[in-house]
Design a protein around this nucleic acid. Sequence first.
DNA 1: TTCTGCAGTTGACTCAGATCAACCCGCCGA
DNA 2: TCGGCGGGTTGATCTGAGTCAACTGCAGAA
Lengths: 255, 255
Amino acid sequence: MRLDVHNSDVPRLCLSCEARHRGVCGVLEPSQLVRLSRHTVRHEAAPGAELLAPGEPVRRYSNILAGVVKLTMTLPDGRQQIVGLQFAPDFLGRPFAQTSEVRAEAAGFVRLCSFPRETLEELMREAPALHQRLHEQALRELDDARGWMLTLGRKSASERVASFLLLVARRADPEEQGESAFDIPLGRADIADFLGLTEETVSRQVTSLRKAGIISLETSRSLVVADHEALRNAAGEGSQGAPSSRRSGRTQSRS
Amino acid sequence: MRLDVHNSDVPRLCLSCEARHRGVCGVLEPSQLVRLSRHTVRHEAAPGAELLAPGEPVRRYSNILAGVVKLTMTLPDGRQQIVGLQFAPDFLGRPFAQTSEVRAEAAGFVRLCSFPRETLEELMREAPALHQRLHEQALRELDDARGWMLTLGRKSASERVASFLLLVARRADPEEQGESAFDIPLGRADIADFLGLTEETVSRQVTSLRKAGIISLETSRSLVVADHEALRNAAGEGSQGAPSSRRSGRTQSRS
DNA sequence: TTCTGCAGTTGACTCAGATCAACCCGCCGA
DNA sequence: TCGGCGGGTTGATCTGAGTCAACTGCAGAA
């Protein structure tokens, strides 16, 4: 997989990492930026590298510059669930906590810009805009997590897979108009860990979406959405009542 | 269900709502408290009352003084999932968003203290301590939501039910030592909506935990944990490897 | 070029949990 | 006192997705 830094021609917002949007640097005053930059380290991580260990003290926060990071939780007996995905300009870390409850792992190659815990907390105290930006990201992640709770608790296997593909497509093309090929940032096993399914089931559902003409695949990692409307319906988010059979979650009318 | 305000003999922190701990009032200066109180309204909600509608503009924020609030999400075809539960001194609302993605509904009788959006946002700008408290609650809710993603994605029905009962027991008795009866704040149907199961399955699993001697029930709403250790194991959080059969989430070793 | 290994796919079979249906029981109102 | 109702339990049956296993195809090493 190739590393690609998005919009590298954008004005540099952070002296050492060029982070923008949701990254922490974009909202700082020039003088604060300089201070932050002094403690900043850029580095890369290979696929599978552990960026944050569960239970370990959190020493550094990071901006993700390129690549995708998986957040996972694991049961004592080894069953694993991906509880979040973080993309390009996201902030990585857990403010106000001594340790992280989740494990963060690079999916594919990842480029990071990281700085010591103390520096960021100091800046957070001084710069309300930074504090607010991090608060907003936390709330956005909370909304996402709750959306996935709905998916995990109530959707069928094919709806889950469609929902995931929709996530990938929307991230690359929020308008949902384009027909270009999107790169799927996870392998089948990781998709399964994200959706609470098995690798085999994911594979079967992808195949059936392909046979239904809703998507097509150039390679197993590259997705082309042929029919956005149909994909949205397949994800259980369509406007018309879905044909799902499962009862789950009372459909009955309410007082 | 009886309304009980916890610790009503605690020093009043908010002139009109006595909120404490995680509530918004506890961290304000006296002068700010007075200002907030001027716009504050106390009210009660009956079981099933809608406190926050999905898609509707958010006009008021609230402190929960007593009772339990369900946060739910619903698919277009009616399948429903509870994506969060909020208890006594929690804050209810979604800062920085025009509309809420979730529906908030009273489970049982709820007592609230609420104030206009503008007032709170104004105070948040002035009082970093308040801002930080809300940020911390958001992060705590995020951790909770991710924990439930693991439960929904990877645990079996009996583990889910045990996990839920553990949640109830821990909330009333964080030490996990007592043997008193805990009030289960939800009916079977709501528990099912929380755990991504059906009412019947919840009922069966409760019965089987009872037959195994791990819990006992005085009424269907009152729980006595007979063996905390066993309950933790049944929830899949035990120290020894659980006897679960389901493969899901690669148990295989990793590089 | 062949060998090896990994990622993904496909098939046959099984089983946990959904579905459908009957039933129990405490409560409230007539 | 009765009847209806809502919440909860139990039983019989069905099915979607997990399990186990074989197989494909590609990519890198020998």
